[in-house]
């Protein structure tokens, strides 16, 4: 979740010069230290741009990891000004002001650090694997030698859509107060994904996942501190998913829960496909936006002199 004030601030021009305090770690000496870099900014500069600028022009030994630089791959998570964020999605203008142009950058908490800002996601991915993040059917052939898809209505899809947006960036894992001391805790990401597959109508083996999450280091260690949802860049809302998962495990143990519906294989088409007129999107719009009107209007961008001089 992006805080409202930061969204506002991100639209401004950042201060001309900012100081980046980067917490670095050298695996050969085993020492962690803070290094300061002073850099000039430009409008639209992200923290990742700033780090890359440092690497290219000031200090080539600074190590970071990124690939998509557009908030999709989930590899650039780091602690920026004390909060886990994606470096590529965080504007310098959102975290630095004229009065306080200092930005602190640290590697993600609770995840082993390999060097500088690069963290080792092996345990994180292991936990994701543990909850079996794939569709399981009573008859495995339906998946392995699938000829047709499984049926799923838009409403059923909406139930899990939010959770399926997870990019495995580990921000939630780094923010959670339970992972902070328990390295065996499955973590918000894995637990949210466990719920995502248990709730998926196409999946037929929810019991197998309930066994995995119902341990001393599973969903019952969560205390609904909600920080995972507060830092998630994709609005996955793991906190809500875990509470639903917990309800399912508790009611399952009491013998009061069983999967209500699992969908069947679609099978061959009964009727030929219908042709449907393409539509402009109706959901997910910024308040007051009209895509139909926008499509008709020619695109023109007015550059002011000030912008061009930058």
């Amino acid at each position: 979740m992006l805080e409202a004030e930061e969204l506002e601030a991100a639209k401004r021009t950042p201060p001309k010069e900012v100081i980046l305090k980067v917490k670095r770690y050298n695996p050969e000496t085993g020492k962690q230290y803070i290094k300061e870099y002073k850099i000039l900014t430009y409008r639209g500069m992200t923290i990742l741009d700033a780090l890359n600028y440092i690497k290219e022009n000031i200090d080539p030994t600074l190590t970071t990891r990124y690939s998509c630089r557009m908030g999709v791959c989930g590899s650039c998570g780091m602690i920026i000004n004390g909060k886990p964020r994606l470096a590529c999605q965080t504007q310098v203008a959102a975290v630095a002001t004229e009065e306080n142009p200092v930005i602190t950058v640290e590697p993600l908490y609770n995840i082993p650090v390999i060097r500088d800002l690069v963290t080792d996601f092996t345990p994180f991915f292991e936990k994701h694997k543990m909850i079996m993040p794939y569709i399981m059917r009573k008859n495995p052939k339906e998946v392995d030698e699938a000829e047709y898809e499984f049926l799923m209505s838009p409403e059923e899809h909406l139930e899990i859509y939010e959770y399926s947006l997870c990019i495995m960036c580990g921000l939630c894992y780094s923010a959670c107060p339970v992972t902070a001391s328990d390295p065996e805790y499955l973590g918000p990401q894995a637990l949210a994904q466990a719920y995502r597959y248990i709730a998926d109508v196409r999946d037929e083996e929810p019991e197998k996942r309930i066994v995995v999450v119902d341990t001393e280091h599973g969903c019952h260690r969560c205390h609904f501190a909600g920080t995972c949802s507060a830092v998630c860049p994709k609005m996955v809302d793991p906190a809500a998913a875990i509470q639903r998962l917990r309800k399912i495990t508790l009611f399952y143990r009491l013998g009061l829960w069983r999967k209500k519906k699992t969908s069947r294989v679609a099978g061959p088409l009964e009727k030929p496909l219908r042709k449907i007129e393409a539509q402009y999107p109706t959901h997910n719009l910024v308040e007051g936006a009209d895509p139909e009107k926008q499509a008709k209007e020619p695109v023109s961008i007015d550059f002011t002199d000030e912008m061009l001089s930058e």
């Binding site: 019952h220 495990t249 143990r253």
Partner: peptide
């Protein structure tokens, strides 16, 4: 004993 059993008793 499963962890969920302890949890259930905790809530009850």
């Amino acid at each position: 004993v499963k962890e969920s059993t302890w949890s259930i008793i905790q809530y009850i």
